[in-house]
C-alpha cells in the first residue's frame, strides 16, 4: 500500500536528473513557498508541482498527500481565527473567554488560515515530488564525500528498517506458537507480554549488529582512507535545470525586494494583483522554474532537444 509513496525507477526522463540538480531545484521551490505570501503565487507553485508530479507518474501518491494536506488546511483554518485578533472585518462576535479575551472571528484570519493551509499543501507536494523523483541512494551518495559516516549510518539504518519490521512479525509469530496470546488479559499483563517480545527483539537485533560490524571489518572498513567513486554524470539537462533554479531564485529575490509576491493580511487583506509587475514577475519566475518540465516535454516530442540533452 505504501509502495506508491516511494521511489520506483520507472525510467522516466524526470528521474534521470543528477541528484544535485534536483536538490537545488527543490530547495529553490521550498524557499519560494516559504517566502511568498501572495495566494496567486502559491497557487501557481502548486500547479507547477502537480504538473511535475504528473510527469513522474505519481498522481496516485499525491492524492494521499492532497487529502492529508486538505485536512491540515481545515485545522489551520479553524485554529487560526480563534487565535488571531488582528483582522478588521469581524464576521462573528463570540463570547468572552478567560485568558483569551473576546472570541471574535475575523474574515482576514480565516483567509490567512486558508493561505497557510495552501502553503502547507505546496510544501507537502514538494516532498512528494522529492520522494518520486530522486533515487535515495544517489542522494545519499552526494553527501558521502563530506560526511561519509553519517551517510553510512543513514543508509545502514534505512536498510535495517524493513528487516526490523519483518523480524518483529516473525518473533511475534514464534511467541504466539508457544502459547502467548497478545490480545488477552488486562493492560499490565499485555505490557508484560509485549516486554518479552521487545527484549527478544532488542537482543537479537543488537547481536545482528555485532555480526554486521565483523563483516564490515572483514571488508576492511576503517583500515585506511575511504575511497570514493561516482557514476553520476552532470549532463546538459542538469546544467540547464540548475541554471533555471538559480535564475528563478534571483528573479524571485528581485521581485520580493520590489514587493512582488508579498502580501499583507492585516488589518485588511491586500488586493491580489496590485499592479502589472505582480503577474510579470510571477511569469518570469514560473518560466525559469518550469525548465525541467519543458525539457521533459521536449524529450518526448522533439528529437533535436532529445539529442542535445
Amino acid at each position: 500500500m505504501f509502495d506508491k509513496l516511494f521511489y520506483q525507477d520507472k525510467g522516466l526522463f524526470l528521474q534521470s536528473f543528477h541528484p544535485a540538480a534536483v536538490l537545488a531545484y527543490l530547495f529553490v521551490l521550498l524557499l519560494l513557498s516559504l517566502l511568498y505570501d501572495n495566494p496567486i503565487y502559491l497557487l501557481s507553485l502548486l500547479l507547477l508541482l502537480v504538473l511535475l508530479i504528473k510527469g513522474v507518474d505519481g498522481m496516485e501518491a499525491w492524492e494521499g498527500f492532497f487529502k492529508a494536506g486538505v485536512f491540515l488546511m481545515l485545522v489551520v483554518m479553524i485554529v487560526n481565527p480563534l487565535v488571531i485578533r488582528a483582522g478588521a472585518t469581524i464576521i462573528w462576535h463570540g463570547p468572552v473567554l478567560p485568558f483569551l479575551g473576546r472570541l471574535d472571528i475575523s474574515m482576514e484570519a480565516v483567509y490567512f488560515g486558508a493561505v497557510s493551509g495552501l502553503r502547507l499543501l505546496v510544501i507537502m507536494s514538494i516532498f512528494c515530488l522529492y520522494n518520486l523523483m530522486v533515487n535515495p541512494d544517489n542522494m545519499l551518495n552526494l553527501f558521502s564525500g563530506a560526511a561519509g559516516k553519517s551517510v553510512l549510518l543513514v543508509a545502514l539504518a534505512t536498510r535495517m528498517f524493513p528487516t526490523m519490521v519483518r523480524d518483529l512479525k516473525r518473533i511475534k509469530e514464534v511467541l504466539q506458537f508457544r502459547g502467548v496470546d497478545f490480545d488477552e488479559g488486562g493492560l499490565w499483563e499485555r505490557v508484560k507480554k509485549y516486554s518479552g517480545l521487545y527484549n527478544v527483539m532488542l537482543l537479537s537485533s543488537l547481536e545482528d549488529s555485532m555480526e554486521i560490524a565483523e563483516s564490515m571489518q572483514a571488508r576492511a572498513y576503517g583500515s585506511g582512507r575511504r575511497s570514493v567513486y561516482s557514476r553520476n554524470l552532470l549532463r546538459p539537462r542538469d546544467y540547464l535545470s540548475i541554471g533555471g533554479s538559480l535564475l528563478a531564485l534571483s528573479a524571485a529575490t528581485w521581485g520580493l525586494l520590489n514587493g512582488c509576491g508579498r502580501y499583507s493580511f492585516y488589518p485588511v487583506a491586500d488586493v491580489l494583483i496590485s499592479d502589472s509587475s505582480t503577474p510579470a514577475a510571477l511569469v518570469v519566475v514560473l518560466f525559469y522554474l518550469s525548465v525541467p518540465l519543458i525539457l521533459s516535454e521536449g524529450w518526448k516530442y522533439c528529437r533535436f532537444i532529445k539529442s542535445k540533452i
Binding site: K149, L153, M160, F161, M164, I212, G222
Partner: peptide, 18 residues
C-alpha cells in the same frame, strides 16, 4: 566511529525508527 559503533548506532536507530 569504528565498525562496531557504526553498526550498533545504525541498528539502534533502525530499532527506534521502527
Amino acid at each position: 566511529l569504528n565498525a562496531r559503533q557504526v553498526s550498533l548506532i545504525a541498528m539502534l536507530a533502525a530499532f527506534c525508527a521502527a
